[in-house]
Nucleic acid binder design. Structure first.
Lengths: 137, 137
DNA sequence: CTTGACACCGTAGTATGGTACAGGGTGCAT
DNA sequence: ATGCACCCTGTACCATACTACGGTGTCAAG
């Protein structure tokens, strides 16, 4: 049994217009239609839709998401190409993780240094973040 | 010695207009001015500017960055408040790291499964990513 | 003392990522 | 057979985050 666009939107937690927007942008394939023109989605369509949302929250643009999603679609593309691209993304993700970890370490250190007493001015929670390297606190 | 807006922009790797934009948005404080109205920046201004850039690449909006940057500025705010907010951000960052790690694991697994031979259609590199959980490959 | 690079301000335009109609057709339940 | 919820297309509008422009003032080197 296939899903209507409304069911898809609801399950993915996005709006109907957004689903159509992603289709126009080439992020998801055009689904088959009924005689009357209604889109008929397979259930698995919700996976890429959820993925798009997650990836955006991690700082990837729709264009970047599309790049990923296109790797397996384009015919005639060699698997080795895909591998190269995957590797590039892995490196990029590595860098993001490291940045986030640095932010986290800085926040943790300074939250600890924070006694819970005194005004904020005495708690330079962001001095460390501003550098990307921790300063002494 | 203080910096002009042009020097700041160059050192931070952004445009002059962007520096002024961030000032209007309250992301960086209004600097002192010369008699003639020129902005005079301390050297450390480049740190928050670089931080803004990095944080954006990690999926934080300018509003969220501003929230972080404001924690230490507002007078009369208690350190415990700051601590609570810091904790919330730590949790948020934790979730982002986990998502990225999941993406990375999936990409690595599938890059390995990719022999480097055969067309992309045989290499479902994104089946796993689309779920957020790995499928058998 | 002028000329060229840079600064000022305000306003407007652009790109991205949606979101909201308007004006119409569909499908099914009563 | 007629609502009513849902779908269709197309266009227009919105928020975010810049980016460019016009008109003017400043400063320092020649």
């Amino acid at each position: 049994m296939s899903l209507t666009i409304g069911q898809v939107a609801q399950q993915a937690g996005i709006g109907i217009e957004t689903v159509r927007f992603y289709e126009r942008q080439g992020l998801i394939p055009e689904p088959p239609r009924t005689e009357s023109g209604y889109r008929q989605y397979p259930e698995r369509i919700v996976d890429p839709l959820r993925f798009i949302k997650r990836a955006q929250q991690l700082g990837f643009t729709l264009k970047e998401v599309a790049e990923l999603l296109h790797l397996r679609v384009v015919p005639g593309m060699r698997c080795s190409d895909v591998k190269v691209r995957a590797q590039a993304k892995i490196t990029e993700i590595e860098a993001k993780i490291k940045d986030l970890q640095r932010m986290q370490v800085a926040l943790k250190k300074l939250a600890q240094a924070c006694t819970g007493r005194g005004p904020t001015a005495e708690c330079p929670i962001l001095e460390a973040l501003q550098l990307g390297q921790e300063r002494t606190c």
